[in-house]
Design a protein around this nucleic acid. Structure first.
Lengths: 195, 195
DNA sequence: ATTGAACGATACCGATCGGTAACATATTTA
DNA sequence: TAAATATGTTACCGATCGGTATCGTTCAAT
């Protein structure tokens, strides 16, 4: 059976190259070469480049969500506090923290959706699935916080998060998450039952 | 001198193909072919593919901003009303309105930044410039509305708009702009001097 | 009517694309 | 120790990449 080590190096290398230079711009030769692996080894582990892209996005989904959850737990303790702290974590990500040692270049799944714009494309679908999981986590937090309309609050916070990430990358506004945080404070405060 | 007609067809065709299939995925042969133009004509008007991409983004910037401004003027009359109506226009865009007859596939400039992630890349810079102009228009509206902190309000609305566009495209939430609109109502209302 | 420029078409360039075949070398397992 | 397997290298496939050269034709200005 093929070794897990070679497969892991391929996925990790592909992920880093895709994130920096894009999916179409990075060829399989370069991935195999920079992973220190023969090209045929790549095709023993993955049927096609698309398969490798999907594996890389799966890994990104796992690693990023794990990092985000840990950072969120460290930043706040109460559910309502975490709903606001989401934007402190995004702020830290924009400014260099985050999984891996690469500079911030926006959301990897937004990039994937940008290059594979057809919603029926499996790659686009993988990006949508990642966003759906993250939305569910926000809904759960909003419910635990006792928000009056947890799903609407979660969707609004998701929009704010997505917008901050995009503004930071495209427009170069490194403090976008701080602007979004101010909005989130008002939303969360207004959604909680008055005490 | 080269004709304006051929150049315009090239830019328009390139814009449509890039928007749907991406910048790297669309080759110059296909652009020239679908524009009904010889390949050499393309290179008589543009030094390189990058030049054509930049020309297409310039056109997108002009056409899209003109469409957006007109739609905004038709949707509301007062400055504060327009700040909220921004999200009605985005909602209409997501649902099929907008310049051109193509289905909504997210923001063309976000797509460009996704494929050309280096902020120093001229293509990325063109996208950033587009976002800067749109932000300035929001700041102007916020000033006219008499907002207490017009620049911060404009940045927050820009984040909301960007987030709604991204959520609609990536996650497939076609009503994202309506969620964002609710948030914008609160922000604009709170930023105006009480009367 | 003649010149000259812009045109579409085609063939071509070296390089790279995604993907495959063959092979010799390790590394493992029996 | 012998058979089996996973490996990295190399060469190759047809197709396409961005970009150039050359052609005969169209068409407008003089």
């Amino acid at each position: 059976m093929p070794s897990t080590a070679a497969r892991d190096r391929l996925v990790q290398t592909a992920l880093e190259l895709f994130y920096v230079d894009g999916f179409h711009a990075v060829g399989v030769d370069r991935i195999a070469s920079e992973a220190g692996v023969g090209k045929m080894t790549l095709y023993r582990h993955f049927r096609s480049k698309e398969d490798l892209i999907l594996a890389a996005l799966r890994r990104r989904d796992e690693v990023f969500r794990a990092w985000f959850t840990r950072a969120l737990d460290a930043a706040a303790t109460t559910p309502s506090g975490k709903l606001v702290a989401v934007f402190d974590v995004v702020d830290a990500w924009i400014k260099g923290a985050g999984p891996g040692n690469q500079r911030f270049r926006g959301c990897a799944f937004v990039k994937a959706s940008a290059e594979y714009g057809d919603p029926d494309d499996p790659i686009h679908a993988a990006a949508a699935a990642h966003k759906a999981i993250q939305l569910r986590q926000l809904i759960q937090l909003a419910r635990e916080a006792g928000a009056t309309a947890p799903e609407q609050l979660a969707r609004q916070l998701a929009i704010l998060r997505e917008g901050a990430i995009a503004e930071a990358h495209v427009a170069g506004n490194v403090d976008a998450a701080l602007d979004a945080r101010r909005v989130a404070e008002g939303l969360v405060g207004a959604a909680l039952p008055h005490q």
